[in-house]
């Protein structure tokens, strides 16, 4: 594995840990979009269907896949649980979490049927997962822009998550040069995903990085 790939996976892992740690330690779900989190469950369940084929790639690969499936379900369970423990926060979330996900679901489903490596159930599901992942953050970004204020941990979560797919792009270029193969579907969706995050990245740079730089003596 090349450094971009490792750093990409680590930032993906970090983003989820930041999110869970955030919910657990502050005991609040404020600013988190349940729609985005449900979309991620769908992303991982449709992408890692190969787990059932038992032709496992590597120990690392399998452990990571199982982690992403289980942690995404766990986050949704945590958010659902807040329905009773944080009734007000949960209601506020539903009121501000108003992005129309049916359009993304329909669009990515069509994309999966049209653009895939092979017209089989597993490959269409994989393609759907890749296209869906590229836009799954939209409800979260929409919610963030609507509320105006943002909890810094939520912002760090979104940043780490966006960084992961961005780092996969140099990884794909690296693999093209060293192995001579490139997955054009993953590359195209990865570029779209990075573009979706680009505005957020710019704001993150302006607010978080520049502010911390100014705070230095």
């Amino acid at each position: 594995m090349n450094p971009f790939r490792i750093l990409g996976d680590l930032s993906h892992l970090a983003s989820i840990l930041v999110l869970i740690f955030n919910i657990k330690s502050t005991n609040t779900i404020e600013g988190i979009s349940i729609k985005t989190q449900v979309l991620y469950v769908l992303v991982f369940l449709t992408r890692y269907l190969d787990l059932f084929s038992f032709r496992l790639v590597s120990f690392y690969n399998t452990i990571m896949k199982l982690f992403f499936i289980s942690s995404s379900i766990y986050v949704v369970v945590l958010l659902q649980r807040s329905k009773t423990t944080q009734a007000v926060a949960y209601k506020t979330m539903l009121l501000t979490d108003t992005f129309k996900v049916q359009y993304i679901l329909l669009g990515t489903l069509i994309a999966a049927f049209v653009i895939n490596h092979k017209f089989t159930f597993v490959e269409i599901a994989w393609s759907f997962s890749v296209w869906l992942e590229s836009v799954a953050i939209l409800p979260q970004l929409f919610m963030l822009s609507k509320s105006g204020k943002s909890k810094s941990l939520t912002v760090h979560y979104i940043f780490a998550l966006g960084l992961y797919r961005t780092l996969y792009i140099p990884n794909w270029i690296w693999r093209y040069h060293t192995e001579g193969v490139i997955d054009k579907i993953a590359l195209a969706a990865g570029i779209i995903q990075t573009l979706v995050y680009s505005d957020f990245f710019y704001l993150y740079y302006k607010k978080v990085i520049k502010r911390s730089a100014l705070n230095l003596p």
């Binding site: 690969n61 992403f68 093209y176 193969v181």
Partner: peptide, 10 residues
């Protein structure tokens, strides 16, 4: 072909 699904990625 050069364009193919890379199965060892996440």
């Amino acid at each position: 072909s050069k364009n193919k699904r890379v199965h060892d990625e996440l």
